[in-house]
Design a protein around this nucleic acid. Structure first.
Ligand SMILES: [Mn+2]
Ligand SMILES: [Mn+2]
Ligand SMILES: [Mn+2]
Ligand SMILES: [Mn+2]
Lengths: 222, 222
DNA sequence: AATTATATTTAGGTACTCCTAAATTTTTAA
DNA sequence: TTAAAAATTTAGGAGTACCTAAATATAATT
C-alpha cells in the first residue's frame, strides 16, 4: 500500500533530482521539513518496495515505478492548482497549500474531469509543466532572474509557488509566466535589481529575483 | 488537534443520534466498520476533548462543540457531492466515496466557493439537507417506501447514498428526490412492491424500497 | 595521514488508529 | 432472582509516521 506520506516523499525526490542526479537525505529532510532520521526510515521502506534505489550514505534515485507515482501526484497537484484558479476563482497564492492536501485524495475520474474542464492544459498557474496522463515531464532547468545580465531582457517561465506572500508581491509587480522583463541594472553587494516591466521600473531584492525563473530571449521553452 | 478519524466519528455519531438520543458503541462500530474496541478508545479521547458526553456502557451524545464539527464535515460532504454532480459532471453514484475523502481536506474558502458556484443550495443530489454555514441541520426522519400503504402515493425526499449499485438502479427506475411514486400493491411474505412511477409500473424488492425515504402527500417537508 | 566538521544512520520513544482476545457489565429470559 | 446472552470495556499488539540523541560514516581541512 502506498500512503500519502510516501507519495509526498516520492514527489519531493522527483522534483529534487531534476533528471538523473542522486538526492541526499538532508536535501529531502530540508525540503519536507522533517528530520533526516525520518527520511532515512522512509527511504528504506520505499527502497524495499522497489520505488527508489538507495545506497546507504550516498543518496537515492527513483526507479521507473517511483517516477510514475511521483508524476501522477505532480499531475494532480498542478491540475488542481489550475482548476482552483481558472474554474473556482482562487488567487494564485492560495492554491499550492490547497493542492498539497487534495492531490492525495482525488480519484482518477476527478483528475480527468478537471483536465477536460481546463481543455487539457500543459502548464499550471505558476508556469510549471503539467505531466501528461502517462507521460513524463521534462522540467527544463531555467535560470533565475538574478543570472540575467544587466541590459538584457528575459521571459518569465515559472515562479516558485510555495510562498503565498511572495506570490502576492509578484502579482502586484506584474510578474507572471510569459511576462517580459528587462533587467536595467543590478546594484552591487547583493543590491537590488532595477527591472522594467511593461514600461514601469521596479526595484526588487535578489531574494525576489531568485524566485523568478526565466529564459533569455531566443531560448524560450519548446 | 482534531484528526480526520475524529471527524469521521463525530459525523457518524451526529447522523446516528438524529436529534437527542444516545448512540451505542456497537452502532458506531457497525456504521464505520471498525471494532467496538476501537470505538471505545476513540470515544474516550473525544470525551476528554469535550466533544461528546460519555457514560461508560451507556452510549454517547455530542456536546455543542462536537455537533458543530460534525455539521461542518457534513456540510463539506454534501456540498462536495452536489458540486461533483452539478459542476463537474459526475453521476450521483460516484460522489459519496469521493466526498468521503475530500470532506476532510478542503479549506473554508473551497467550501465557500463551491457554495457560491451552486447558488447556496440546501440539498445534495440524494435529497439530504445541506447544513448552513453555521446553522444546524434539522434532518426530518422520513419513512421508507416500505411503510407506504398500498394504493397511496408519496413523494421521494431522499435516498441512501452509500451504495453505488443501488443508486444506479434507482436512477434507472426514475427514483430521485421529488419523484412521486404510487404504491399500487405490496406482495405478501416480504414480496416485491408494485410501483407506478410516471405512468410506468415497476416491481422492486423491499430492500430497494428500504433505501427510499418519502413523505406522504400532504406532509411533505417544509 | 590525522583531525575536524558534516552528513547519515541507528536506537529508543511518542502519538495515532486500528486489531483480537479476555474480562466485565448490562440486559434479557428463564 | 438467577443464569444465559449480548454489549462493552480493558489488555496487549501491530503498523505508520514522526521525533531527539547517540553512534557511525564520509568529506573537508590542516
Ligand atoms: Mn504547488
Ligand atoms: Mn505550481
Ligand atoms: Mn454521502
Ligand atoms: Mn448525499
Amino acid at each position: 500500500m502506498i500512503t500519502h506520506a510516501m507519495e509526498d516523499y516520492l514527489k519531493t525526490v522527483y522534483l529534487l533530482q531534476e533528471g538523473q542526479k542522486k538526492v541526499s537525505t538532508s536535501a529531502i529532510a530540508q525540503q519536507m521539513d522533517v528530520s533526516a532520521a525520518s527520511v532515512t526510515g522512509m527511504i528504506r521502506k520505499l527502497a524495499a518496495m522497489g520505488l527508489l534505489n538507495y545506497a546507504s550514505y550516498h543518496g537515492v534515485e527513483l526507479t521507473e515505478g517511483g517516477k510514475k507515482i511521483a508524476q501522477e501526484i505532480i499531475r494532480h497537484h498542478r491540475l488542481l492548482e489550475l482548476y482552483l484558479v481558472e474554474i473556482m476563482g482562487f488567487t494564485w497564492d492560495k492554491v499550492h497549500d490547497e493542492a498539497d492536501k487534495l492531490e492525495h485524495v482525488i480519484s482518477e475520474e476527478f483528475e480527468e474531469r478537471m483536465s477536460e474542464a481546463l481543455g487539457h492544459p500543459t502548464t499550471d498557474p505558476h508556469g510549471h509543466a503539467i505531466p501528461a496522463k502517462d507521460g513524463a515531464l521534462q522540467e527544463v532547468a531555467y535560470e533565475t532572474l538574478t543570472k540575467v545580465d544587466a541590459g538584457s531582457s528575459a521571459t518569465v517561465q515559472h515562479v516558485n509557488d510555495n510562498d503565498p506572500e511572495m506570490l502576492r508581491y509578484l502579482d502586484q509587480l506584474g510578474i507572471l509566466p510569459s511576462t517580459v522583463i528587462q533587467v536595467v541594472s543590478k546594484e552591487p553587494f547583493n543590491g537590488p535589481l532595477r527591472l522594467r516591466i511593461d514600461q514601469t521600473e521596479h526595484f526588487v531584492s535578489r531574494e525576489v529575483a531568485g524566485n523568478v525563473f526565466v529564459a533569455a530571449p531566443g531560448k524560450e521553452a519548446n
